[in-house]
């Protein structure tokens, strides 16, 4: 049942390669690989600094100028609770659209584009709330585990409480 629900969730915004396949942009944080659906990605750019935003949580790295619009940058490592990334020129910002907003996700590197079958998407094992909250599912590719990022969850709760 749950797997079905995920498929429905993703199906409406997928440019379908085959009826039952999904294309992902895979990127790494440390040793781990994560993926987002390719259709949500707008652009990939090198880290070039960001203007810090006061009164926000530590995973909000600040805002950048993307051709005249201001786009917030989220530090995915910090979002997972592993502390802030110390970014270099080699770090990468993946700009994506979430709903009608554009956001950037700071990751270590972008690896490749994966084509996976929807049938291969597994549920996130219950246990840790962070995992189930931030991941939509898990898929195996070349015997690597790829976590499917739930963008809506990643960008929520950015403001400091109080």
């Amino acid at each position: 049942m749950e797997a079905l629900a995920i498929r429905d969730d993703m199906g409406d915004k997928t440019a379908v390669v085959g009826a039952n396949t999904l294309q992902l942009i895979a990127f790494s944080i440390g040793e781990q690989t994560y993926g987002v659906e390719i259709t949500t990605v707008r652009e990939i750019r090198a880290w070039n600094g960001a203007t810090p935003l006061p009164n926000t949580r530590e995973f909000v790295r600040g805002v950048i100028n993307l051709r005249g619009t201001i786009v917030p940058i989220f530090d995915l490592r910090a979002r997972f609770g592993d502390g802030q990334t110390s970014p270099t020129k080699n770090h990468v910002v993946v700009v994506m659209s979430v709903g009608d907003k554009w956001v950037g996700i700071l990751v270590d590197a972008v690896s490749d584009i994966l084509t996976v079958s929807r049938d291969d998407i597994h549920n996130v094992p219950e246990g840790n709330a962070i995992d189930t909250e931030l991941l939509n599912g898990i898929v195996t590719h070349d015997s690597r585990m790829v976590g499917l990022i739930d963008l809506h969850a990643v960008v929520s709760g950015a403001k400091m409480d109080g």
């Binding site: 935003l53 006061p54 009164n55 805002v63 619009t69 201001i70 917030p72 907003k101 956001v103 403001k159």
Partner: peptide, 11 residues
């Protein structure tokens, strides 16, 4: 800021 983010206090 709200276009892609949300309102931030003091900004």
């Amino acid at each position: 800021l709200e276009e892609n983010f949300e309102r931030v206090d003091g900004i």
